[in-house]
Design a protein around this nucleic acid. Structure first.
Lengths: 186, 186
DNA sequence: TTTATTTATGGACATTTGTCCGGTAACAGC
DNA sequence: GCTGTTACCGGACAAATGTCCATAAATAAA
């Protein structure tokens, strides 16, 4: 819980408000391989990752297409399923033993309705989310797989250590076979 | 201006609040081919389209990659450039003579800070934006170009009439040559 | 340590998709 | 109605990427 408090404090939210906000979250341990969101089920929680690594993926034709991997001190949610409160098409799974601070959809509604400090944070977070998603999209459009691999190497060298290349290949939008070719050409 | 008022009224905002909100927008005519956002320039406005069709595209290797086309009664903005207030990498151009109701970045900040009715609308709009962007991404990942073409035919048959196929090909992520192959296979 | 499992690599070949055309048809301006 | 421009199609070939696979290395399990 201290991690989440530190996070909100770092966003300029007062100690009192931070206490009110974090009180809406509850801790849950997640074992490696467990699902935070599972295809077909409606996601009712948003979470803050206190520990661990999570993989977003779609199952298609019996294969897994990984779209995103995120870890400690970031938020975790299936955007479509959470906001539309409808069954998810994507899966979110722990790649390692992990810890989450979860908030229920209804409690988030209350928080953003009643708590001004949180609402202001929330608006900024949504704007950042939109920007981040658009940047990802822009990169997928304007960069080649090679260039995106280079960007990934530069921005997230840690990921390359923690995550099997097959997942990175999937995120880059190529097969492991082709990523091997890319790495060969430096 | 009536169009924008009708839009906000339709979102459940009172007549009084709607008047306050729409007062922050000003009308501008745009000729076919003119730019709303141009690569290299920082976008300072968000707009509501009262008339016309607009194309979002990236210029890459001397070619245009169209990512989105939108029209009357929708909002228009370059997400990255507008929110980060930094030079844009994408272009937004009128495909026909058009009319816009524009609001300056600073006035939007005021509106979302001071006007509760607008702020609530704005939060919902951002959530919808995130959902929409994620759905687009999901479709790009899980559907083939054929399937996306079928979805487009079903959801936006009007677009197929108004917009040259080369743009649609670009949105689908294939060359016009390949879209021709797709259409040939029905 | 030994054995089984997962992960990474790269050859050989198939498929998909792009590039570079040229030929019509449709449309816009004179 | 002519004439230049733009849009659409599809052939022929090239390039990029995927499929299938065997091997070897790395890691986890026994």
């Amino acid at each position: 819980m201290e991690q989440l408090s530190a996070y909100f404090s770092g966003k300029g939210i007062s100690a009192i408000e931070t206490a009110v906000i974090t009180a809406a979250f509850s801790f849950k341990k997640i074992a490696k391989g467990d699902y935070f969101v599972q295809e077909g089920k409606t996601s009712k929680y948003l979470a803050f990752i206190t520990k661990g690594l999570f993989q977003y993926y779609y199952a298609k034709d019996g294969k897994e297409i990984t779209t995103y991997i995120t870890g400690t001190n970031t938020f975790l949610l299936s955007i479509i399923s959470f906001y539309k409160q409808q069954p998810s098409k994507e899966n979110i799974r722990a790649l390692s033993d992990a810890g989450l601070l979860m908030i229920h959809f209804d409690d988030l509604v209350k928080l953003k309705t009643n708590n001004e400090a949180f609402r202001n944070f929330y608006i900024g977070a949504l704007e950042n989310l939109a920007v981040g998603m658009d940047e990802t999209r822009s990169n997928l459009i304007t960069l080649t797989a090679e260039e995106r691999y280079a960007v990934l190497m530069k921005n997230e060298p840690a990921l390359l250590q923690q995550v099997p290349l097959q997942y990175l290949a999937s995120i880059l939008g190529v097969t492991p076979r082709h990523l091997s070719r890319i790495r060969n050409n430096y």
